[in-house]
Design a protein around this nucleic acid. Structure first.
Lengths: 107, 107
DNA sequence: CACATAGTACGATCACCATCGAACTTCGAC
DNA sequence: GTCGAAGTTCGATGGTGATCGTACTATGTG
């Protein structure tokens, strides 16, 4: 188990990678939940509809895209939304997505 | 050849579908070019790196997501960015993407 | 120590999608 | 009508990624 996983620097953020991460509904749900909570959340405390191993996969994709930061607290792995850094790299992107997710798909 | 293809109404716009459309770099390039031009562009006048049949596929995905409107002008098929409608359904989304695409991937 | 908890690593599977070429259609020009 | 230009349609193919179960590792607790 990698106890200190690599996180990309803001200067390395890549739009394609970020969109690839955000296009998956499970991953977008993770981001939405983090944004709504406004605080760190452990991997296991998310409301997800996939298995643990699949969840691990999704968290890795989000981390490698730069959307979340992960650090251990005991056996739990805490997840932080890298909001400010994302906003700096891609202004308005997360805002638009969070806002779009909050309202019904059809109006 | 379908001469009057179906376009979704704004009330039917779906975030997942829109993101699925925008995550592909070729399709995003089409949207960016339409936004930059500010006017309708024929399918064949885009700067794309794929074959004609693949391009047709991409235009269809964009149309079915509601991102573009298509109509014939002679043998040419003109494409219009549905900017205002997208902005109404998903405020800030296109702005953020166009803006992100304008600057280099890394800074 | 033994045990439970939290998550990772690894392979395998499966579905989807971007891509293409070839054949076809539609329209305008000659 | 004949030709070319502009797109579409139709398979086929190939790669990628989401998913899972199982085995494993690390940490905390008794």
């Amino acid at each position: 188990m990698e106890r200190a996983p690599a996180h990309p620097d803001v200067s390395e953020f890549d739009l394609q990678r970020v969109l690839d991460a955000l296009v998956d509904p499970v991953r977008r749900s993770i981001v939405i939940q983090l944004d709504a909570a406004g605080e760190d959340i452990a991997c296991g405390s998310f409301d997800l509809s996939v298995s643990k191993s699949t969840a691990t996969h999704h968290f890795r994709v989000l981390r490698e895209a730069g959307l979340i930061r992960q650090h251990y607290a005991g056996t739990s792995r805490m997840n932080t939304l890298r909001r400010a850094e994302m906003d700096r790299a891609f202004p308005g992107l997360l805002d638009a997505l969070v806002r779009a997710a909050r309202r019904p798909a059809r109006r």
